[in-house]
Amino acid sequence: MEKVVTNPAIVVEELCVEFSGKTVLENVSLTILPAELHVIIGPSGSGKSTLLRAINRLNEFFPNCRTSGLVRIRLDGHLVDIYARDAPPLPELRRRVAMVFQTPAVLPFSIEKNMTMPLKVTLGLRGGELRERMEWALRQVGLWDEVEARLLDEATTLSGGQQQRLCLARALALGPQVLLVDEPTASLDFRATETIEQLLVDLKDRYTIIAVSHSLSQARRLADRLWVLREGRVMQQMNRRQLQDAALFQEIIDNIF
């Protein structure tokens, strides 16, 4: 029944991650297709965030982490083993595989500086080009009209939803190919959640998106493909059709939790 995968965006094979000798992910294998919205759910402590962070090697930021297995990402048309010796340098990898967190993590600077600083520092953009890129990214997340007049305000003065969109815009501006989204609406109210969800749906044609979600209903609304994680293992994979069948969905979920 499954479509034969011909051009996967990300291939994860037998991924294991340990922190200080404690196994968090065990033999996780999955294939991520382009132009689909992938959602990972699972109880807390099931390794969702760790899986996400394995894809841009952010786990290495934390002490005593050991990763084994294979993660290959399609960058500029080729599948690249990101843990290999000749992999692209970490800063570049993380720019191509962007990440947005649960709590909006704006830098304690102005809105404008939040957007421009990474662009200036990593891509060396200046002047008109810089401004153009900032405006483009802010428009992508529908924030431009709201902040155009107050670009020099502290970013922390924005509302939670606006901050989250700013983080998304900051990530998009760097020109990623993959977006990793870690429970992006967990700290937001209903309206802001709706905006972010719509945004993800709009963006999925152009970016490979993997989202971790804390809510089953959100997962059902968003996912083209769903993975259920438990105790560091993939328990179940579901496609759009299975997700739409409410009875089947309920049965599967009941079996797992």
Partner: peptide, 13 residues
């Protein structure tokens, strides 16, 4: 939107 590659990564490190 075109995205430029950063230059001189080796040098920078």
């Amino acid at each position: 939107m075109p995205f430029g590659r950063p230059c001189g990564l080796r040098l920078r490190s």
